[in-house]
Design a binder for these strands. Structure first.
Length: 404
RNA sequence: GUAGGCGUAGUUCAGUUGGUAGAGCACCUGUUUGUGGCACAGGUUGUCGCGGGUUCGAGCCCCGUCGCCUACCCCA
């Protein structure tokens, strides 16, 4: 028997229904916010992710499904969605249309070569949105609102954490400040953090190590070092969230794992799904389009992890639906096909090809959760009728086939 | 990469100091020559993950290996 690869899952029955329900719900809501679908390749040139996600990130450093294709190209299965969408945006020269706004949603598989555990797979699926050309913090707020709408529609509770990561004006001085602070206590910081001082000092902030966390209590906070523009933008975001009664908490240690974020960063978390608690995350990335050779274009986006919210979704009740059609003797089977075709115009139909006793047909109808069980038995076959039972109302009747 | 837990029927699991494998659910049949879900009765289902070792004898003990789960790291 050949099994799926480690960290890759098949979805069937209830699970695949949950999956589809999440995606269709998210699509419906993002369309109402003006987003349209973008499909981009799963395979991209490796350097796209090196440049966008960032060399210092773990994703690029050790988690990429990277290989050389038969043409000798260094390629990579996408570990996240934003980079490909931005590449597509630039390639289509949408960055030249500076006064226009573009909003795209996408969904599909992402790949990271990690050790699987609860809520973390090697192939997982994200639904995401990217909004280009709108630099206003109103858009940051609108996206957070939209995610809230999606979770509400799915019946999912969450906590919202927000932070500001600053901009090219205020981030570098803060970064220097932080490096100085970290160097002063580097002997007490863990091994990983010592490495991060050189590679990505900001990420020391969300180290899980307890000694590190206690040392960091006195560290300089970016939120109090923001430039005027970033600070007023963050205040505006907070004010909008308050006025719409969206509860949030400011987490000064919230650092997105990807290098391209600036200003607003947010994460939706759930405490019901184990240690991998982030169910959606995103933020603003005003510099990424130029990083990828486009004209400067502000942008903000998010992604939600479909597998992580699958076990949180409250599914609508499933009700009996459609028809189960069968016959009790071999000779009547052929006559069922026109009936099935007619009903399939409007209803779900399950057609049984083997003759069976009535009891077996009724059980078959239960099994496929049909509302009606329609059977041609010996008598019905003789006089051109069909017996139909409503399995919910428990009413039955025999009608001419032409009336079916 | 590291650590812990677990691999027995389709599924969830039990299996005593080692003595040749069991239960619930599911499935099939019947009670009902044409009335489902409920009830009752009966029945089918196994490479005990794989390989080796110890033993008269291994699901159980030992060694190895593969797989799954959880956690660290990181993130959706």
């Amino acid at each position: 028997m050949i099994n799926a690869l480690r960290g890759m899952k098949d979805l069937t029955f209830e699970e695949s229904e949950r999956f589809v329900h999440i995606v269709t719900t998210a699509i419906g809501i993002s369309k109402k916010y003006g987003y349209s679908y973008i499909e981009t390749p799963i395979l991209e040139e490796t350097k796209l992710f090196r440049r966008s996600v960032g060399e210092s990130s773990d994703i690029v450093g050790k988690e990429m499904y990277q290989f050389e294709d038969k043409g000798g190209n260094d390629v990579c299965m996408r570990p996240e969605g934003t980079a490909g969408v931005v590449r597509a945006f630039v390639q289509a020269k949408l960055d030249r249309r500076q006064n226009e706004k573009f909003k795209f949603y996408y969904y599909g598989p992402m790949f990271r070569y990690e050790r699987p555990q609860k809520g973390r797979l090697r192939e997982f699926h994200q639904f995401g949105c990217e909004s280009f050309g709108e630099g206003s913090v109103y858009e940051d707020f609108t996206i957070i609102q939209m995610i809230g709408d999606i979770f509400r529609a799915l019946g999912i509770g969450y906590d919202l954490q927000i932070n500001s990561l600053g901009c090219p004006e205020c981030m570098p001085p803060y970064r220097e400040n932080l490096i100085n602070f970290l160097n002063d206590c580097k002997d007490e910081l863990c091994e990983d953090c010592n490495r991060r001082i050189g590679t990505n000092p900001i990420r020391v902030l969300d180290c899980k190590n307890k000694t590190c966390q206690s040392l960091l209590a006195d560290s300089p906070k970016l939120i109090t070092s923001l430039c005027d523009g970033c600070e007023s933008g963050f205040e505006k975001l907070v004010q909008l969230l308050k006025s719409e009664n969206i509860s949030y908490e400011v987490d000064t240690n919230l650092v997105r794992g990807l290098d391209y974020y600036s200003k607003t960063a947010f994460e939706f978390v759930s405490n019901e799904i184990g240690s991998q608690s982030a169910i959606a995350g995103g933020g603003r990335y005003d510099k990424l389009v130029e990083f990828l050779d486009g004209k400067p274009t502000p942008a903000v986006g998010f992604a939600l992890g479909i597998e992580r919210i699958m076990e949180l979704v409250v599914m609508p009740n499933i009700e009996r639906e459609g028809y189960y059609i069968g016959a009790m003797e071999e000779g009547a089977i052929d006559s069922l096909f026109p009936l099935a075709s007619k009903k399939r115009v409007t209803d779900k139909v399950t057609l049984e090809y083997s003759p069976k006793k009535l009891k077996a047909h009724l059980k078959g109808a239960d099994r496929v959760n049909a509302r009606y069980c329609a059977v041609v038995g010996e008598d019905e076959f003789k006089d051109g009728t069909i017996w139909v039972k409503d399995l919910v109302e428990k009413q039955e009747f025999t009608i001419n086939k032409s009336e079916f």
